[in-house]
């Protein structure tokens, strides 16, 4: 993630006001409240004063040019940024289901059980398909075979992969096609029944057909999970998401319903971005 912001661009975007928050508090699954974030002990912030709420049971897309901080924000939501030693939330609060997730008594492990994540590059373990899906349950201590079988089947069905792999659950996950591997990763994520699924450009490594399958899958999963998806593909955002947040160089420029953002953005930069004039 590049955080080398030069002063000219910063002054160019500085006067943009924060959007009013259009979601009612009670529906909010995730509340992001004035959050700033830094990768280098707080010397430079890659996210600056971000505030918006993500509603439950909806798909929210985060868009913006590369380096705008959308992936960083996503990784703040399940504290995957903890893995970088020098990273730090320098300001504000992120609350999920009302709990400040950066509070000292929050265990990131418990958090991540509730907030699953699907990565840009599909990353199944070099194990069997079955073991991949059962992985999350096993590390939670579930050893009961019928229970695992049931969960694996349910997750694979939910990920629309069951039909393709049911006869070869014991074979290596690495033998699947790219799209299948990514759906397997989604199955692995939903097997532990999280409340929220974060997706970090889940289709960027896939061909258009595989992408379409994943998008269908997202559409199906929205009923059960709150989904936050980072994408740089604007068509994909329009196809899968209910709400869209547009980021630019570490700041939230505009956040609204997807229809509104793509048909009638209220900020000029958003319009320029979605019409392809920069980024």
């Amino acid at each position: 993630m590049s955080n080398s912001m030069n002063d000219t661009t910063r002054t160019a975007t500085a006067p943009v006001p924060n959007n009013p928050n259009p979601i009612a508090k009670q529906d909010a699954m995730i509340e992001i409240d004035d959050v700033s974030f830094s990768y280098d002990h707080g010397q430079t912030n890659v996210l600056r004063n971000i505030s918006f709420d993500i509603p439950a049971g909806k798909v929210t897309a985060l868009i913006g040019p590369s380096g705008c901080g959308k992936s960083t924000l996503l990784r703040c939501l399940n504290r995957m940024n903890d893995l970088v030693d020098t990273s730090k939330v320098t300001n504000g609060q992120i609350r999920i289901m009302g709990q400040d997730i950066n509070a000292s008594d929050v265990d990131p492990i418990e958090l991540r059980k509730q907030v699953g994540m699907v990565f840009q590059k599909y990353n199944p373990f070099p194990k069997s398909i079955y073991d991949n899906v059962a992985y999350g349950l096993r590390i939670q201590g579930i050893k009961n075979k019928p229970k695992l079988d049931e969960a694996v089947e349910r997750s694979l069905r939910r990920a629309a992969l069951w039909g393709e792999v049911k006869d070869r659950l014991g074979s290596s996950a690495l033998g699947l096609s790219g799209g299948q591997q990514q759906r397997l990763c989604i199955a692995r994520t939903i097997a532990v029944s999280p409340r929220i699924v974060l997706m970090d450009e889940p289709c960027s490594a896939l061909d258009p057909i595989a992408t379409a399958r994943i998008e269908e899958l997202i559409a199906e999963l929205r009923e059960e999970f709150t989904i936050v998806i980072v994408t740089h593909n604007m068509q994909q955002a329009t196809r899968v998401s209910d709400r869209t947040a547009f980021f630019y160089i570490g700041e939230l420029i505009e956040y609204d319903s997807t229809a509104k953002i793509f048909s009638n953005p209220s900020v000029k930069q958003t319009e320029e971005y979605i019409t392809g004039r920069f980024g």
Binding site: I96, M97, G98, Q99, D105, V106, D107, E110, Q114
Partner: peptide, 9 residues
């Protein structure tokens, strides 16, 4: 719901 994500063990 402030008891979410608390440390166990």
């Amino acid at each position: 719901m402030a008891t979410h994500f608390k440390r166990k063990g």
